[in-house]
């Protein structure tokens, strides 16, 4: 087994009395697509927020290539080579699609202090390549504010890929998309992962997507990791069955956010 890129040990977080995440440990190896699934409120987003530095963990350890990154600010985590997409998309509404990607590139090339050369002329080709990669090239000049939700998700992917990350954290990358589109986006992601040898941790509630693309699956329930393993192992796990099938309504549903 190759060396793990991300190694998480005993990660915990509570909000007041509520244990949102408790004692979660897992590893992620190079090139792996790891899915984190679980019902609404299971603590997935909280996990992500701790990994990328947005939230302070109560306890635990997060190692990226052997270096502890817990307690780093989001921007430091990003500089270490971790990209992220958000469950609630976070893009610059008053910029065009291309400019959104350019911003990430500008930051990556450490040009944000440049006060003279026009921003829109910087890293245009790289930005267009990334947009082409996610299939958004035609929409490059549109304002991000008027994009369809699925397009926003693809834009987020392009932004997250801008600094050639080693690890990608994708919170609900396909939420709000039509089923067909979901499959296409995940296929795209899987292709990119394979091509660039990136590791991906993603959450997803569409089981078709998960089963089709994840190399491995972890199941979170009430903040606790209740199962993890290959697709088949998880599919047949009794506790998972109980959580998911016993109360079908627990599936993260129609509403997102």
């Amino acid at each position: 087994m190759s060396q793990s890129v991300l190694s998480v040990r005993n990660l915990s977080k509570s909000f007041g009395g509520l244990k949102a995440v408790s004692d979660v440990s897992f590893d992620l190896v190079k090139g792996e697509l790891l899915a984190m699934i679980g019902p609404n409120g299971a603590g997935k987003t909280t996990c992500f927020n701790m990994l990328n530095g947005q939230l302070k963990a109560d306890a635990g350890q997060v190692m990226l290539n052997g270096e502890s990154i817990l307690g780093f600010s989001p921007r430091k985590v990003w500089r270490k080579g971790v990209g992220r997409t958000f469950q609630i998309t976070a893009t610059y509404a008053s910029m065009t699609v291309r400019e959104n990607v350019q911003m990430a590139l500008i930051s990556h090339h450490r040009r944000t202090w440049d006060i003279w050369r026009p921003a829109s002329g910087q890293h245009v080709e790289e930005a267009m390549d990334l947009l082409a990669l996610v299939g958004m090239k035609e929409q490059a000049e549109r304002a991000a504010a008027i994009l369809a939700y699925g397009d926003l998700k693809r834009l987020e992917l392009a932004i997250a890929l801008a600094h050639a990350p080693e690890l990608l954290l994708m919170d609900e990358p396909t939420a709000g998309m039509a089923p067909k589109e979901r499959v296409r986006l995940m296929q795209l992601t899987a292709d990119i992962v394979a091509e660039r040898n990136i590791s991906v941790l993603f959450t997803e509630h569409d089981m078709d997507v998960v089963f089709a693309h994840a190399h491995r699956i972890m199941v979170l329930n009430r903040g606790e990791l209740i199962a993890s393993g290959s697709v088949d192992e998880v599919r047949n796990d009794a506790r998972v069955q109980e959580v998911y099938l016993g109360g079908g309504t627990l599936f993260e549903g129609q509403a997102h956010g």
Binding site: N52, Q54, S73, P74, R75, K76, W78, R79, R84, F86, A90, T91, Y92, A93, S94, M95, M103, A104, S107, H108, T112, I159, A162, H163
Partner: peptide, 12 residues
């Protein structure tokens, strides 16, 4: 537009 996004693309 989005302080969150800005921090998460490595900008102080």
């Amino acid at each position: 537009d989005n302080p969150n996004r800005t921090e998460s693309i490595g900008i102080n």
